[in-house]
């Protein structure tokens, strides 16, 4: 009896999971489908599921804008912001995990609370700061802002990973004569590498998708892929074929990257929670 309930529960959960997954995936699926339609087919009602696929939208997109310019900017900003964020977060999380003070807990919560702030609330000051430091429309400027917005999450995640490393192993390193720096780089980092990798992965995805700051702080030189999509949404009405093609091109690299590394990512995100 118990076994039967278990089996039926399992089937139910499986159906539910597939349902949610397909539901979440549908917009992406629809976007990719639309990108292979002509603009006329794209807005036909009822929508066509069977049609002659065409690459015309892609051709027009490539003709009108320099995809590689935007893609390169996105890569520079994402990788740069992630690298700096990890470099700053590792020592921060290390000290919080292994040498906590009375205020560590509240500092962590405060850091996270900054993520709750709507970015538009600090748009003007950040814009002015960027303008006065001549960082408007530069990859450096955007990378710094992206890095700062993600830093709290990255510190949190690394903190959680580091907490899983048994303290005696680090203490053994200290007894062996390691300095704090050696203890961190030679003992802690190799042990926490899977966690650091999945944290970096998450940061990369967040930076890749970040639209608010990239639209407000860049115009042409440093415009990333989010600006590339946006540039197809406004002029002379909406051309859904081209917009979909542009969007597909923008999300494709990170989608493929995420697909390849999903095992690592899931393992990282559920680390500790399922242990």
């Amino acid at each position: 009896m118990a076994l039967k309930t278990k089996t039926s529960t399992r089937i139910g959960v499986t159906i539910l999971a597939w349902g949610i997954a397909l539901w979440l995936f549908f917009p992406i699926f629809w976007m990719i489908l639309t990108s292979f339609k002509s603009d006329v087919q794209a807005i036909s009602s009822p929508p066509k599921l069977v049609f002659m696929p065409t690459l015309s939208s892609y051709a027009e997109v490539f003709e009108r804008a320099s995809y590689w310019h935007f893609a390169l900017n996105t890569m520079i900003v994402s990788v740069g912001a992630t690298a700096i964020a990890i470099a700053l977060a590792v020592p921060a999380a290390y000290s919080m995990a292994f040498m906590p003070s009375k205020r560590t807990r509240s500092t962590l919560l405060w850091m996270l609370s900054t993520r709750m702030l709507p970015p538009v609330g600090v748009l003007v000051p950040i814009y002015l700061l960027a303008r006065n430091t001549h960082l408007l429309d530069t990859c450096t400027g955007l990378a710094i802002v992206d890095m700062l917005t993600n830093l709290p999450i990255i510190v949190w995640m690394l903190y959680t990973f580091f907490r899983e490393v048994p303290a005696p192993i680090l203490e053994a390193g200290r007894m062996d004569g390691a300095t704090r720096w050696q203890e961190m780089t030679m003992v802690l980092l190799p042990l926490a590498l899977p966690g650091i990798a999945s944290t970096a992965l998450l940061s990369l995805i967040l930076c890749w998708n970040e639209a608010f700051w990239s639209l407000n702080l860049t115009s042409s030189n440093a415009a990333p892929l989010t600006a590339f999509i946006a540039s197809f949404s406004s002029p002379e009405g909406l051309f859904f074929g081209k917009l979909s093609a542009a969007s597909t091109l923008a999300v494709a690299p990170i989608l493929i990257f995420g697909w390849i590394s999903q095992k690592q990512l899931v393992r990282g995100l559920t680390f500790g929670a399922v242990k």
Partner: peptide, 17 residues
């Protein structure tokens, strides 16, 4: 510093790297 006291320690959990 612990490493400079000339001591060596064996931990309960072994604490091997």
């Amino acid at each position: 510093e612990p490493g400079k006291r000339g001591l060596a320690m064996v931990f309960q959990s072994y604490a091997l790297y």
